[in-house]
Design a protein around this nucleic acid. Structure first.
Lengths: 249, 249
DNA sequence: AGTGTTTTGTTAAAAAAATCACAATAATTG
DNA sequence: CAATTATTGTGATTTTTTTAACAAAACACT
């Protein structure tokens, strides 16, 4: 029936699960069959869930092949501005810091820059942030869990405030979807309010990071006023800040 | 000089480091240049360290592209066995269930099979489980956070027990690294004991899922005895089970 | 502005990979 | 053992990806 095919797939899976990428040629030689047979084996498994993928004549295991990435599109908007912002932010981070990192796309470019430090702790409630930080061996990761909200790729819970307050956070890096000098700082999703407020309340330093497109904008959920922050990182120049003493760049 | 090119590479790197695979087309659109330019960018980086690879018209980050693999080291991951196990397990799952899903590789093949249900809730403390479940729109995801342990891709915390006990878990799917009829069920990492025990204590049904390679094996951390489970899913036949009344297959 | 350099886009050619169709082989069954 | 069925290999076809070459545009510098 499918014994032969399954046996080959198992063999290939075992090799691939060691983090290797195997050319189709090698796979065929290894299993002592033709390339066509391997192709057919791979097509057969497609019934359930695609496990082994054939990409450019090479077999690889990695999942998440779906090009259904809305994250990339979001990042496309004002990406250079966000990147530049993050570069300025990272200069203010010190070795050994415990950082609270907010959800959203603004702070994503920062995470790759954390490799330069020898030791850090990152606290977050966002799944994409956790995934970007998890491979970094120099960063201790604390993920605040709860119910998953796909729209913001983050978690919410009624105990998240209490859990954040137990953590010794040095610097809270807060992002926002809207920043208005008079009305305050806002975001899209209400479940984000609790963790943001808790981080602001607990952290020794609170930094607001928002590119120019957020300035003067108001979103559904207010979570803070501007003067609750110690610094505002932005590439906008036209906002009247009420804190001239702190480095607002 | 290399400002333009480097900026694009950085941008792509940031997107790719979120575990995505980006088609060359999309990359070109995203950077607002032609595909050829992206190709040239990628060729340029080859001087230093090969970071972004182009495979079959898709960009991916993963390293170890060298096909110089040792055939000799074929460690059996027993993937087909695990997959077959999971297929038997999924048959016992019902629509609307709230499932606790343990960490490790045993239960990973199950997650893709959850698409066939119309509505489920998955509770887990494993990052890889969360990532596999997050894209499923029919599954409500609850991730129990804490400090991240890379070795098991899971989280640990001193409050995880209390948080699990608040959840109404229908079926707890527990995996193990060792199953011994006399000595009990064990795992590698001590931080896994608390969530496992809490799930066993809370859940209405407890299922142990372990392939044959785990039977008769003992690992550092015991977390339960065999008779604490309502069912044992395994492909081994030689273990003397103490529960003949329940469906042990 | 004008020259030389670098960067980029377009086109065409080459190479590689994926698909298809059919023959050959091996396994299964009555 | 013959007949049927399933599985596999080979070669041709189509598609896609990669490479190469050249022209246009942007940039730097005098």
């Amino acid at each position: 029936m499918k014994g032969r095919s399954a046996a080959r797939l198992e063999k290939l899976y075992d090799i691939l699960s060691q983090g290797r990428v195997v050319p189709l040629r090698e796979a065929a030689t290894l299993c002592d069959v033709s390339e066509m047979t391997i192709r057919r084996d791979l097509a057969r498994q497609e019934g359930e869930q695609q496990e082994i993928h054939l990409l450019g004549g090479r077999l690889l295991l990695n999942g998440s092949m779906d090009p259904a990435y809305d994250v990339a599109e979001q990042q496309a908007s004002r990406y250079p501005a966000k990147k530049a912002l993050c570069q300025r932010v990272v200069e203010q981070i010190e070795d050994g810091d415990t950082l609270f990192i907010d959800c959203g796309s603004t702070l994503i470019p920062l995470l790759g820059l954390l490799q330069r430090f020898s030791e850090l702790t990152v606290v977050t409630y966002a799944l994409n942030v956790a995934n970007a930080v998890a491979p970094l061996s120099n960063v201790r990761l604390v993920l605040l869990g709860g119910l998953y909200y796909p729209a913001s790729q983050s978690f919410g819970s009624d105990t998240i405030e209490a859990r954040i307050e137990r953590l010794g956070i040095n610097k809270a890096l807060i992002s926002a979807a809207g920043v208005d000098a008079k009305r305050g700082v806002s975001c899209f999703h209400f479940h984000e309010v609790a963790p943001k407020r808790a981080a602001i309340a607990t952290a020794m330093q609170r930094w607001l990071v928002a590119d120019a497109s957020k300035i003067g904008v108001v979103r559904p959920a207010y979570f803070a006023m501007l003067d609750e922050f110690d610094a505002l990182f932005t590439d906008a120049s036209d906002i009247a800040l009420s804190k001239p003493d702190q480095p607002s760049c």
